[in-house]
Structures are given as C-alpha cells and as structure tokens.
Simulated scan of single mutants.
Amino acid sequence: MSVILSIILIVAAALTAAPLVGRSTGVQKAIVFASGDSNPNDNKPSATRNFYLTVDGEQFGVWHMLPSSAGIPDLDHEDEMSYYHDALRDPDATIILYLHGNGGDRANGGRLPLYKLLRSLNYHVFAIDYRSYGDSDDTYLSEESVVADALKTYEYITDRTDRPIFIWGHSLGTAVATHMCSDLQRLGKPSPKGVILEAPFTNMQDELRGNSFGNIMSYHPLFKFGVADAIYKNKLRFESDEHILEFSAPVMILHARDDVVVPYDLGHRLYLIGSSQRLSGTGPVEFHSFDENREFGHMEIYRAPELKGLVENFVHKYREKNVTIPHFFRNTMQQCAHP
C-alpha cells in the first residue's frame, strides 16, 4: 500500500507543477521506479545462493534458489558456487528467471510464495534486484538500465548451462522481459524457451492513463503534457505492445480482473496484439484470467490453485522445443551483425 500511496502523491504533485515535471527526469523516474535501499537477505529463502553481478562497474543482487527436490545443501562457503553451478547442468534442470515490478525488492510481497511454488515444481529460480533496488548499487535508473541487468543475468545463466530457461515478469518486469527478449532476438543470442507475463501492460503511457489512480488524474488538463508525454519523450516507454512482436518464444499471460494497478484490459489488449500480429512461425500467445471475486488483485495470483498446473503445462510443452526464428527475424539479425 505504501508504494501505491507514494505513486498517488508523486503524480498529484506532478500535476500541481506539470511544466516543471516536463523538464524533470528525476520526478518522471520516481513515478516509474519506486526504488529504494533494503536488505532482501533478511528474508532469503533456504537453499539460496546470494551473489552479485556487475554492469558498468555497478553491482546488483541476485538469488539462485535451488529446486525443492535438491534439499538444503550443507556447504562451506568455498564450495557453494561450484555446487550451484553443477546443479544448473543437471539434465533435468529447468530455470526460471524472475523479473519483479517497480516496487520493493526481490523478497517483497507475493514474491516469496511464488518462488516457493516454482521450486516445488522442481525449477531453479533466479531473482534479481535491478540497480537502485534492494541491496544493489545506485545508478541512473532508466529503461535501458533495468533491461541491461536482466540481460546480464540471462547471459550469466546461459554461460553456465544449456538447460531450458523461461522468463517470468511481473508488472513492470513484464516490460523488462519483452524488451530483453526483443534484444536477444535482434542480437542473435539464445532465446528463452518461453515467457510468462503476470499483470502486463501494453506500454507505459497506456499504464499511466489506465490504472485507477492515473485514470482519475488523466482528466486534469495538465496530465498529458506534464506526465504521460514527458515520460514518453524521455524514453521511459516500456513498449511491450511492440516488443512482443519482435521475438519468437511462446508467451503465457496471467491477469486478475480486479487488478487496479495494471488494468486487466491492458493485459488482454497485449494478448490480442500478440495473438493476432505476431509473424507466422513464432510461438503462440495464451491468456489466462482470474475472476475479481477471487480477490487476487495485482500481487496474489500465486494463490490460485490452478496456477501450478498452468505453469507446469506451459513449461512441459515448450522446454524441449527449439524456438524457431522466422525468415524476417533472421534477415534483421544479419543486418544487425553486418551494418
């Protein structure tokens, strides 16, 4: 609730001084990124290795959580890294890279119960805190910076194993996921086997106008100029409606109808775009909704009894399939390689 309240107060202040906001990237970033210092390791799950990766000389925190079937290893610190790396190379290993939303850290809210569910399905789970979040170093936050952190983690995993990787993004993390997958395809790098988007939106302008707080404030005559257009101009765009068309991996979208932070209609609209406009030969897009009377809201789809089966079926269907690259994408990759 504190994150939601902070967004309301920031946007309300933005409307009061809209001309200034139009020139202040700091205020714009505060609207998009509810970041802050914390220590997620106070709530670190068992059988989890905490470590740090570096982008542009700045570190960000990572958890590698073992599948439940692995038990709790009794290791000296010196043996920990090699044990976890060896586990990734197990022939039965499946890896989930989880990208969280705009608030809190990798230990917040419904994230820990979701990790537990994924681990119970015998998946390795990687979760990160983007720079400026949690115990990560501060940085000049941008769309590029959070995507770079996700990409660095993905490359860390693929450098150590060839086992199937799936991406799970939540809220803002869904836009990080689609942007990263678009970059992977454009650069000709290995693609994830599938992408799970929980509470996604089409793009940041739609999200700012559409959520319950922005929807009320959008009637203010200065909202468009002072907030939505300024954020777009400064490249805080998070355009999943474009990026979902730029990679081949299959996609599963999950959205609760009573989500007031990211409106259900935005997730469904993204599904319609992906399912109707992706190139022939790319993976399908599927959509699963959760009725409002179940009160899952923005953060608690993990409570749905059927979620475990949905995830298991999606992973089982695609974990051994090769992600095909349509001819158009291959041409684009060649152009990027030989400008």
Rank of each mutant, 00 (worst) to 15 (best):
Asp79Pro: 14
Phe314Glu: 02
Asn122Asp: 06
Met204Leu: 15
Asn39Val: 06
Asn313Lys: 14
Pro45Gln: 04
Ala70Tyr: 07
Thr94Trp: 03
Asp129Glu: 01
Ser218Glu: 01
Asp76Ile: 07
Gly169Asp: 00
Asp138Met: 13
Ser275Val: 08
Ala87Pro: 03
Arg163Ala: 05
Leu9Phe: 15
Ser35Ile: 05
Lys193Thr: 03
Asp206Ala: 04
Ser212Val: 12
Arg119Gln: 06
Asp137Ser: 14
Ser171Ala: 02
Thr202Phe: 01
Ile7Ser: 01
Thr16Met: 09
Asp56Gln: 09
Pro305Met: 10
Pro221His: 11
Ser218Leu: 00
Ser145Thr: 15
Thr25Pro: 10
Ser136Trp: 11
Gly297Tyr: 00
Ile157Glu: 00
His243Arg: 10
Leu222Gly: 08
Asp138Tyr: 12
Pro221Ile: 13
Ala12His: 12
Leu121Ala: 12
His327Cys: 11
Lys152Gln: 07
Ile31Pro: 01
His64Asn: 06
Pro73Val: 07
Gly71Phe: 03
Asn41Pro: 06
Gly101Glu: 05
Ser212Asp: 13
Pro326Asp: 09
Ser212Ile: 13
Val3Ile: 09
Asn234Met: 09
Ser132Ala: 08
Asn102Ala: 07
Phe223Val: 12
Ser35Cys: 13
Lys235Val: 14
Arg163Asn: 11
Ser68Arg: 13
Leu279Gln: 07
Asp291Glu: 10
Asn50Met: 12
Ser142His: 01
Arg278Pro: 07
Asn215Gln: 15
Leu118His: 07
Glu78Cys: 07
Thr282Arg: 06
Pro339Glu: 05
Ala337Ser: 11
Phe223Met: 07
Asn313Glu: 14
Leu172Val: 11
Glu155His: 14
Thr161Cys: 14
Asp86Ser: 15
Gly283Thr: 01
Val251Met: 09
Glu239Asp: 04
Phe287Gly: 00
Gly274Ala: 09
Ser240Gly: 04
Ala230Met: 00
Lys29Val: 06
Phe287His: 02
Gly101Phe: 02
Val251Gly: 05
Pro113Asn: 06
Ile31Tyr: 02
Asp162Arg: 10
Ala199Lys: 07
Val32Pro: 06
Ile231His: 09
Pro73Ser: 11
Asp241Glu: 02
Glu312Asn: 14
Gly214Val: 00
Glu312Asp: 14
Glu306Leu: 00
Ala12Trp: 14
Pro200Asn: 11
Ile301Gln: 05
Leu208Ala: 08
Ala107Ser: 15
Arg111Trp: 05
Tyr154Thr: 13
His338Met: 11
Val195Leu: 09
Cys181Phe: 04
His100Ser: 09
Tyr302Pro: 08
Asn215Glu: 11
Asn331Pro: 08
Pro326Asn: 09
Ile165Asn: 02
His338Trp: 04
Ile128Thr: 06
Val62Phe: 00
Met217Arg: 01
Phe329Met: 05
Leu88Trp: 00
Val227Met: 00
Leu75Pro: 05
Leu15Thr: 05
Val125Glu: 03
Ala127Lys: 04
Glu143Phe: 09
Leu307Glu: 05
Ile273His: 12
Asp129Ile: 01
Ala70Thr: 04
Val262Thr: 10
Phe296Glu: 03
Arg111Leu: 13
Asp149Ser: 05
Pro200Cys: 13
Leu208Val: 08
Pro19Phe: 14
Ile96Met: 10
Pro45Ser: 04
Glu292Met: 04
Ser46Ile: 12
Gly71Ile: 06
Val3Gln: 05
Leu15His: 02
Leu66Gly: 05
Ala17Leu: 14
Tyr264Lys: 03
Cys181Ala: 13
Leu172Met: 11
Leu310Asp: 01
Asp183Trp: 10
